[in-house]
């Protein structure tokens, strides 16, 4: 994206390419879609508490408090992961290379698991099931693995090292 004309500016502040902006926004969208799941569960709490099983037996009729605690703990951990993921998106946006690699690894793992489910178990991936999240993961991976995103992360690192050396 940058020509020789902006060579000097590259060292001071590399220009953020569209792929990094788009990739970070998609990560935020991915986190928001996770947040939507949490909201859905919260609004239909009793229904979901009823689905908690331990060793194949429903827990709710036996010990409703424990079932609710387990569901709350699950939701809490998921929410915590989502917040971490939002932080990762912010770091990708600012051009941290390790954050980009970690985000790509997450997306790849999620894609590969979905693909295994799809090809081995014949899982249906439609709008009603996981098409949106799979689409988001693939778009994130495409954006962050692009040459522009890679060069940007490297340039930011080089600029940081140069500033540190001064």
């Amino acid at each position: 994206m940058t020509g020789a004309r902006s060579g000097e500016a590259d060292v001071a502040r590399p220009r953020r390419p569209a792929s990094v902006v788009g990739g970070s926004l998609l990560m935020v969208a991915r986190a928001l879609s996770g947040g939507f799941v949490i909201v859905t569960v919260l609004t239909r709490w009793q229904e979901f508490v009823g689905t908690i099983e331990i060793n194949g037996a429903r827990l709710d009729p036996v010990d409703p408090q424990a079932a609710a605690a387990i569901l709350g703990w699950l939701l809490g951990s998921y929410g915590f992961i989502l917040v971490l993921y939002l932080g990762l998106a912010a770091l990708v946006f600012t051009g941290r290379n390790w954050a980009r690699v970690v985000a790509m690894a997450f997306a790849s793992a999620s894609i590969l698991i979905s693909f295994a489910d799809y090809s081995l178990n014949g899982a249906q991936i439609t709008l009603r099931t996981s098409l949106v999240s799979v689409t988001l993961d693939i778009l994130i991976l495409l954006a962050l693995s692009s040459t522009n995103a890679r060069h940007y992360a490297r340039a930011v690192r080089a600029a940081r090292l140069e500033r540190a050396a001064r």
Binding site: S108, I111, L142
Partner: peptide
């Protein structure tokens, strides 16, 4: 990741 993203996009 570059190549994996290529295959994923085909999928």
């Amino acid at each position: 990741f570059f190549v994996l993203a290529g295959f994923s996009s085909v999928w």
